[in-house]
């Protein structure tokens, strides 16, 4: 095996990309080449060191490329509408008008001459007339303010209604997305989890069976060893008793013989 082929195969072996027969051949080759085996072990250690570098979690704020938020949350649109309404209200409040006089277009503020004449108080000559003129102007301003208030209230109610409708639509969309996610989970994840649980149960059953078999085998061995030991003890005891009995008999015979000699 040349150097280049050895490197290629070593990398394939290290990352489990060899076919079964290639793997067997390479392992046989490794068994005859302790230097290569040592190099491979060293690389495995380096890989183990690399695995100590954890993943980092990026900031979630940069995840979304385009926000799928519904239009109801588009504040710019509302801001533009409010500014436009305020501008129109201000124009109306200050009597903005466009007049065409002698072929010219004139943009003007304030009351038109005719209107001024219509609401212009009579020429003031004394205090009573000043008061009347002031009251007339005040009434006119109050009427205009009420109109503006009423316009704003109507506009505000319309906006609120539109916003509620859009919020309801957004909520509905969210619920629909949630339901889709739930359904996807039920369809994809639940069977997988069930399979894993079933697999775990079968593994546990197998482990239990092996454990019980080992326990039974151990218990039987222990029992047989105990019986053998008890048998051996009994045998020793019997021999001991027999020996002692013989010794006692011998002593007795000796004693009896001794007394006979004495007579």
């Amino acid at each position: 095996m040349n150097e280049s082929t050895r490197r290629q195969q070593m990398m394939d072996y290290l990352y489990g990309e060899l076919e079964a027969d290639e793997r067997r051949d390479f392992e046989q080759w490794l068994a005859d080449n302790p230097e290569a085996r040592a190099e491979l072990d060293a690389m495995q250690e380096t890989r183990m060191a690399l695995s100590a570098l954890p993943d980092v979690k990026p900031a979630p704020a940069v995840f979304a490329v385009e926000s799928p938020a519904p239009r109801s949350l588009n504040l710019k649109r509302w801001k533009r509408a409010a500014i436009a309404a305020a501008f129109l209200g201000a124009l109306w409040l200050f009597n903005f008008r466009v007049e065409i006089q002698k072929g010219s277009v004139i943009l003007a503020f304030g009351k038109a001459p005719e209107a001024v004449q219509a609401v212009q108080p009579p020429a003031v000559t004394d205090n009573e007339q000043w008061r009347a003129a002031y009251a007339a102007l005040q009434t006119e301003w109050e009427r205009k303010w009420k109109s503006v208030d009423s316009l704003l209230e109507t506009q505000s109610a319309t906006w609120k209604k539109q916003q509620n409708v859009q919020l309801a639509g957004w909520k509905q969309l969210q619920e629909k997305e949630l339901e889709t996610a739930r359904r996807e989970f039920r369809e994809k994840e639940v069977p997988r989890v069930a399979y894993m649980v079933q697999h775990m149960q079968l593994e546990q059953q197998e482990e239990l069976r092996v454990m019980l078999e080992q326990f039974w085998s151990n218990w039987q061995n222990t029992r047989q060893t105990d019986l053998k030991n008890i048998g051996a003890h009994f045998s020793d005891l019997y021999q001991d008793v027999e020996t002692r009995q013989k010794a006692t008999e011998a002593m007795f015979v000796s004693l009896m013989g001794g007394s006979g000699v004495g007579k």
């Binding site: 980092v56 979690k57 990026p58 940069v62 995840f63 979304a64 490329v65 799928p68």
Partner: peptide, 21 residues
């Protein structure tokens, strides 16, 4: 757009970690 966001959400951390390392 939802699929696009999901796709990016799935792959963003992988690309980020590659570049970070």
């Amino acid at each position: 757009k939802r699929a696009l966001n999901r796709l990016f959400t799935l792959w963003y951390p992988r690309v980020y970690n590659l570049a970070f390392r």
